[in-house]
Write a protein that binds this DNA or RNA. Structure first.
Lengths: 342, 342
DNA sequence: TACAAAAATACAAACGATTGCACAAAAAAC
DNA sequence: GTTTTTTGTGCAATCGTTTGTATTTTTGTA
């Protein structure tokens, strides 16, 4: 019970496989009537082209590799979805891998994608990753790489990033306007671009307002638990009156810590997060946060890749494309009523 | 600048490609010393095996197709992640497609997977789908299909489903214990197994308690908006005092409607949802809901597929495998304090 | 030293499509 | 009615592996 091939179709029609191939490809060198006959026969025999064989022969596959730290994170799953939305109509499929935030798994995943001869790779790096050699090697092997969100300039190709600086700047400035002055910053490793950019935005806003931010920045505080711990320490030892957290999870931990001190958000302390996780608008008090446009990012990444594959890269191919973010002002930072969006 | 092939390695070593192939595959028919030489040379030349060619020759690929309604839904993204966790170590990769809940896209996605000669398919049907012919055809072509969550018996192969009946039964019984008697049910299309099972559980619990459930069941209410509308209508016209919603989104809409009537949850009206979406524990009042174990489901689906691919299907291969669910009792249904889990 | 058995390698044919080139038949031009 | 051009097909090589079979080399034994 073998699957039908173009050879089977050719034989049952008394032509050669080449003609069948051309007919199915819509090649104009085959007569209209033959094309019809072939197409009908193909349908009749339930023919499914073997893309594997075609890829081998053509030396190019129509599969695009996608590599993310975790598929099930809200942000990443939405980027994936957006990428798929663009790539599918263009005739590409997605081979998806996750690195689980591990540098080693990221490396292996890239190798897997290369072994599968993907037409290109869209990826976001693991937190751990400091060696970008493997991603660079992909480009050496003529496999275009588009990075998004967590990017590194050591890898050639387009980089689509959120406007982390502006998001952070807007968030902190908003806190300052609300009258908060001792604003702490909880974030992740500053060797990761997203966090270093957010830190820069924070710092810029603080300095612009001539506020001191010494000893109020913590790097390893990105989960709910670490956010809770660091916030506890800061409240106790640094007289802070607001927090700008580089993530929503640590914001929740922070609010928990504030609550335990018998203080109120936002009256006693303001909190602004980053990412607008699904729960951010539902918690009490509702969390002000910086919204990232995952869809926009996914669309841009996919389009950038398609342009490269088609050989029409934009002029500034190796430059960063910045996706705007929005500050969502909710209850957790709203000491005085103001507009809902800045 | 061609990529190195086993032929290149063979030539630079003065052996044949077959030997190289066998050496790299760890075949014991090749001498230890040759194997070493080959492996070193392969490393030196930066050889990346061409899986496409290997797949063609072997007639089987190590790619598994995964088809879900939407990648970015909390439940599905977690199932995908779990599947990946099992499949990756087993040497498989995931080709992922989404149907966007459209029957036509589901059909096309299956064709894409078949054209890519995937080793198997793990899928959950779109809401729309009523014709399961294409999925069945996959199995005809010897591509094993494992269905999960939204399944249909018309397609041969394992079906991994949540214990929708028990979940619904527990939820409704819990409401009844809390003293609620006029319990309405908002759900999706009853032609989808997950909803029909939940409805059965609801009905069974109601009848067991000799409660009437006439004219209190609505099918097309699964989003926040439709949940809001139907709830509004029910409160106005049917004197209901509780809602069992087949999803968390419609639960939110329901609570909104209740709130608008000036009634309190849970004191005046109880609400229980289904799915335990990320926001469920964060909203006010916290939503009682039925938790599905996406990870468990993903693991089981992946393992079932691997067993089939390896030719060791379990005896009851065509039977359903039921994943237990948990009722999470939170504030929205807790008129009187009881245990947090039943 | 010769010879059988065992071990290691070579040969060559797949897998299923694509595609440059050759070639026939038909159409157009002279 | 030739010659030239156009048009439609066929031929055969190719993509990079894998693998059954043949062949060589090595090893062991008499």
């Amino acid at each position: 019970m073998k699957r039908t091939t173009i050879i089977d179709i050719a034989q049952s029609l008394g032509v050669t496989p080449s003609t069948v191939s051309r007919a199915l490809a819509g090649n104009l060198r085959v007569r209209e009537s033959t094309r019809k006959r072939v197409q009908e026969k193909a349908l009749e025999m339930g023919y499914q082209p073997n893309i594997v064989a075609a890829s081998l022969r053509r030396g190019k596959s129509d599969t695009v590799g996608m590599l993310v730290p975790r598929i099930n994170r809200h942000f990443f799953s939405h980027v994936i979805s957006a990428v798929e939305e663009v790539l599918n109509p263009a005739g590409f499929n997605l081979l998806i891998c996750q690195s689980h935030e591990r540098a080693e798994q990221e490396k292996q995943a890239i190798q897997v994608l290369l072994k599968n001869r993907v037409a290109g790779i869209i990826m976001s790096h693991a937190m751990e990753t400091v060696d970008f050699e493997m991603a660079r090697r992909a480009t050496d092997e003529r496999v275009p790489v588009v990075q998004f969100d967590r990017v590194n300039a050591a890898v050639p190709g387009p980089r689509i990033i959120n406007d982390n600086f502006s998001g952070a700047y807007m968030a902190v400035k908003h806190l300052i306007r609300g009258g908060y002055t001792r604003i702490a910053h909880l974030t992740g490793s500053l060797s990761v671009n997203v966090y270093s950019e957010r830190f820069k935005g924070y710092k810029y806003a603080m300095e612009e307002a001539s506020l001191d931010c010494g000893e109020m920045v913590f790097e390893g505080a990105i989960t709910r638990e670490t956010g809770y711990e660091k916030a506890l320490w800061l409240i106790k030892n640094r007289k802070v009156d607001a927090f700008f957290c580089a993530g929503d999870h640590s914001s929740v931990g922070t609010m928990q810590a504030i609550h335990e001190f018998g203080l109120k958000v936002p009256d006693d302390m303001g909190v602004v997060g980053f990412a607008n996780e699904p729960f951010a608008g539902f918690i009490t008090p509702q969390l002000s946060t910086v919204e990232q446009n995952a869809y926009d990012m996914g669309h841009r990444a996919a389009n950038a890749l398609i342009r490269i594959i088609n050989g029409n890269p934009l002029p500034g191919i190796d430059q960063e494309e910045v996706v705007p973010v929005r500050l969502l002002v909710r209850e957790s930072s709203m000491r005085t009523p103001i507009n809902n969006t800045i």
